[in-house]
Design a protein around this nucleic acid. Sequence first.
DNA 1: AAAGTGCTTGTGAGCGCTAACAATTGACGC
DNA 2: GCGTCAATTGTTAGCGCTCACAAGCACTTT
Lengths: 362, 362
Amino acid sequence: MARNVQRSPVMADVARLAGVSHQTVSRVLNDHPNVRQETRARVLAAIEGLGYRRNSTARALVTKQSNTLGVVAFDTTLYGPASTLYGIERAARDAGYFVSIVSLRELTSHDLAEALDHLGRQQVDGLVVIAPQSAVAVALAEMPQPVPVVTVEGDADVGLPVVNVDQRKGGVLVTEHLLRLGHRTVWHVSGPQDWLEAQGRMEGWRETLRAAGAEIHEPLSGDWSPRSGYRCGQILAGMPDLTAVFVANDQMALGVLRALDEARIRVPEDVSVVGFDDIPESEFFAPPLTTISQDFSEVGRKAIALLLDALAGEDEPVGTLRQAMEPSDGVREGPSPATPPPHVVVQPRLVVRRSSGRPHGS
Amino acid sequence: MARNVQRSPVMADVARLAGVSHQTVSRVLNDHPNVRQETRARVLAAIEGLGYRRNSTARALVTKQSNTLGVVAFDTTLYGPASTLYGIERAARDAGYFVSIVSLRELTSHDLAEALDHLGRQQVDGLVVIAPQSAVAVALAEMPQPVPVVTVEGDADVGLPVVNVDQRKGGVLVTEHLLRLGHRTVWHVSGPQDWLEAQGRMEGWRETLRAAGAEIHEPLSGDWSPRSGYRCGQILAGMPDLTAVFVANDQMALGVLRALDEARIRVPEDVSVVGFDDIPESEFFAPPLTTISQDFSEVGRKAIALLLDALAGEDEPVGTLRQAMEPSDGVREGPSPATPPPHVVVQPRLVVRRSSGRPHGS
DNA sequence: AAAGTGCTTGTGAGCGCTAACAATTGACGC
DNA sequence: GCGTCAATTGTTAGCGCTCACAAGCACTTT
């Protein structure tokens, strides 16, 4: 009587229509080898006919794999994280995974724990954490990880797999570029000191100056925002020997440009300014900004590649490699401790535009 | 013998420890009223003790609710969509939902169908689609929707619930602002014509000019990028009677500013420029940009609120309201056709900065 | 005293799928 | 003819949870 309610077909419906058992349907769906060609065709026809789609929940229940990857991101309204997220999402989807995302506005250990808990409830198969602050990377390393984790822009020393752009190298490229133009030294507006990216960029800058025997001025520090760059720019505008500034990101560089402009300091005639990130806007700043381009999408793709590797390696050893090769020690998870966690580095690239030039009289 | 394998506790384990049946554990977890206080406490203690966490997959299998909302977004590297996404994600998580995301680089009907298919496999409970192009909104309306859908920046006329910013109003605010400053007319650099946002902004502009009896110049059209704005700016720089431009987004406005600067046209002394979006950078453009601020996060929150409403309304009528109130017609889903789909509008706000001013001689 | 009431708890079935095992078939060799 | 083998298919038992229902109990009501 109440049978006319439209409910989506299940495996048994397909099986009935194809004249086989539900298990055979399952075999066809999972590409099992031992199914006769003709049977397979009949099953596929039935699937097509009914518009059947496998219930992934039921499948997840028995296989204990959700086919979902979790992503913990931080301030996805910024260009860099947003681009990375896009790369991650794309790569994961291409690999047949769903992507569940948690974005944090604040990057505290508490919020991170909450985010991991949230994703844990969903039984994600693996996790990508964008962990640009050293404290976060450490906190993450200390949390129990029931699933493989890959960090992005994280700390390579905490023992988790990591994919990042060589920030230090970026700082080197910028500083060498400016020194080569003839500047005696280069000032620096850094990002927040607890950010690994800020640290790396500053290191590259400092070491290049040191290697060149150039004077090293105390860096100014901003919070990545144009406003903080503006404030630093106002300070820099008062420095008599200022000829070149390396600003740790493009947004702050915009603020610096604005402050210099207000102080009637011309760029690049009086002062050269170089940024970092190559956001789409920077080519149209006044003047167009010399900066460092990072392939964020590539970072996202690499992160997923690493995670998929870890996922594949996780299944395999059980009962085969592991038991055969480690006869006594059954406690330790993952590859042997002799193998360090993978660390993938993406190279940055200097993009020279009009904001950098030779200093006066050279 | 092989019982020492560490597996996470299940409901039965909790039940055993608490000395109750698994069903009572379930009741405690689901806040069922009829559980004795003392029993509840014992169960909670057992849960705590074992570190038990409910298996959401098993729960989803029987309740047929995945507790996951799907989001289809477009170009999340842009500030607007990224902010909206953040608002959506936050609101959904606060409501206890997981968020599964698919971001499209291209906004074709095919990619959209693929995205919906992807999310459908995951059995999402509801869907938020950021559908800024008219064609997409139409395509979406024509696709079968097994779950409630809310569109963001979509077409209110296609019959789906929609949340958007009053773009037309934004165009009106800008144009009125410029006319009030004394400009005889306002030029327009619009976004891509198939974008609803571009259409709305242009409409507001055109109608305000018409109402004021001002001359209406053929608008130029860009693709939202700074580069396209730059090209339009070069054309505008050649217009003899140019005193004011309304550019449909801040990124293009940046390009326009650059082109005008190169043509030695001063802003705002010679020409006023107004943008749209209020991206964080715009306050530090040269000069700081007058623009329209949109509360993207609010849009995201409203979208989720609408979706949750729809979700709540979906369960309820079964067997109660529906059957009681519609005795004969059991085919049509949702509320009666007399109720139009909800349409939530968020108001934009004019932010006056230095790029707009009085024209020469007024 | 029998029946009814409301609260609390337990029992059994089953969501849709996969994994392990069992059963069937035909081919082959002796 | 019979055993052996591989290929193919079916049968059964869960995965961990919720739902419907029943059962037990202390009180009331007639």
